[in-house]
Simulated assay, not measured.
Amino acid sequence: MSSNRLRLADGEQVIGALVPPKITRPVRAPAPLPVLPRLILPADPDVGALVVRMARLDRSGRLSARELLEVLSWQPGSRVDIGVVAGVLVAASASTGRHVVRDRGGLCLPAAVRQMCGLLTGVPVLLAASPSQQVLVVHPVDTLVRLLTEHHSRLAGDDHE
């Protein structure tokens, strides 16, 4: 038998030239995980610290909020991190952020994050920007409705005492 042929069961033969040689590679240490951004909710007690607007998400998850992005000084090309904090979507300015402000003052919100926060296409969202903290929070409109309902109930309760 020639040296470039190997015997297999049932008389089959493998031609050595067609079988690649076994390659051994050095074992590398795993790469360290990237440090995740620490996103926080704005908590400035000053009432004027938040700039609030309403918007709608388009079917691609883009949010057009040029006016708020200007208040935050986020220009086209500015980098931001986007994540979930306490069930709401938070975007924060970050020099190494994975997301970029678009040319027309838009921000693409990742589908997984939108889904986790209950943000639906075409349904209004409440945007709260904190220029001092460079943070934009996106709330589903249900949050605003719930807060207003609770507030109205408290007001009605005060009138009936």
Rank of each mutant, 00 (worst) to 15 (best):
R98T: 09
V80W: 05
Q75N: 13
R102H: 05
C108L: 11
V123Q: 04
V100Y: 01
L89H: 12
L107R: 03
V80I: 11
V101T: 00
I82C: 05
G118K: 02
G77M: 10
A112W: 06
A86K: 13
R102D: 10
E70R: 11
G105L: 04
H99V: 01
R104L: 08
L120V: 02
D103S: 09
G106Q: 09
T121R: 01
Q115C: 08
R104I: 00
E70Q: 10
R79V: 04
S95L: 14
S78G: 07
C117R: 03
V88P: 11
A94C: 14
A94Q: 13
V123I: 02
T121Q: 02
L120N: 01
G87W: 14
Q75A: 15
C117W: 06
S95H: 13
V100L: 07
P76T: 03
G77L: 11
L107E: 04
A94D: 15
A111K: 05
H99N: 10
V88I: 08
A94W: 13
R79G: 03
L120I: 00
G87V: 09
L120T: 00
L119C: 04
A111C: 00
D81Q: 14
C108T: 10
S78E: 14
G97C: 02
I82A: 06
A86W: 12
D103T: 08
G87N: 11
S93E: 15
A92V: 03
A91N: 09
L120S: 05
H99C: 07
W74R: 10
A111P: 00
A111S: 06
V88Q: 10
H99F: 11
A92H: 03
C108N: 03
G106R: 07
R114A: 04
D81G: 11
G122I: 01
A111R: 09
C108V: 09
G118Q: 02
A86F: 11
V100W: 05
R98H: 09
V85C: 14
W74G: 10
D103Q: 09
P76Y: 01
A86M: 13
A92W: 01
A86N: 15
S95D: 15
V101P: 02
G83C: 07
V84K: 12
R114C: 03
S93W: 15
D81E: 15
L89N: 13
G97Y: 01
R79Y: 06
V88C: 11
V113M: 12
L119V: 02
V85F: 14
A94M: 10
V90P: 12
G106M: 06
V123D: 00
A94G: 13
T96F: 10
V84A: 09
V84D: 14
L72D: 12
D103N: 07
S93D: 15
P110D: 08
A91K: 09
A91S: 13
R104T: 01
R104P: 00
V85Y: 15
R104A: 05
E70L: 08
D103E: 12
R79C: 06
S73I: 03
V85Q: 15
M116D: 06
V71G: 06
R102Y: 00
V88K: 10
G83V: 07
A111T: 07
V84P: 13
L119I: 06
V71R: 15
L107A: 07
G77A: 11
H99S: 12
A111N: 03
L119T: 03
G105R: 08
T96M: 11
Q115M: 08
G122Y: 01
V84N: 13
G83K: 06
L119M: 05
A112C: 02
H99Y: 12
V80N: 05
V80P: 04
